[in-house]
């Protein structure tokens, strides 16, 4: 699914854009625990989380996940935006809760990157 399609589906917005709108997203990692991202993310393009801190961006960089989505309209502070720009991570925001986001993406055929290993 294209990045623009994901943003549209979750009525989200792009906070930091480092990828083309046509960037293909196939596998998703859903967690708030950063070690889980480091442990499981073998081949994922999107991390969905409710954490709105800079370390999420750092973790995405180390785990090679190019796109991060913060759910439930959690406020994204300047530090997080600045880190995303520095690390070239695309940062998305949505008002929807994690459950709805996952449900919708799953229904569109996106896979969990945990099973995609």
């Amino acid at each position: 699914m294209e990045l623009s399609g994901v943003v549209e589906l979750v009525c989200g917005r792009i906070v930091v854009k480092e990828k083309d709108e046509s960037f293909d997203i196939t596998a998703v990692c859903t967690t708030d625990m950063m070690s889980d991202v480091l442990h499981f993310a073998k081949k994922g393009e999107l991390l969905v989380t409710s954490l709105n801190q800079s370390q999420v961006i750092m973790t995405a960089e180390i785990a090679d996940i190019p796109v991060v989505m913060v759910v439930l309209g959690k406020k994204i502070e300047k530090e997080m935006t600045a880190m995303a720009e520095k690390k070239h991570i695309t940062l998305l925001s949505t008002e929807l809760p994690m459950f709805t986001v996952c449900g919708m993406l799953y229904a569109k055929g996106l896979k969990s990157c945990v099973n995609g290993k």
């Binding site: 708030d32 070690s35 370390q55 999420v56």
Partner: peptide, 15 residues
């Protein structure tokens, strides 16, 4: 609450 301390750190390093 900051997303760490789930007990995966050392196992992750070893792995």
């Amino acid at each position: 609450e900051m997303g760490w301390g789930a007990g995966m750190g050392l196992p992750n390093i070893k792995r």
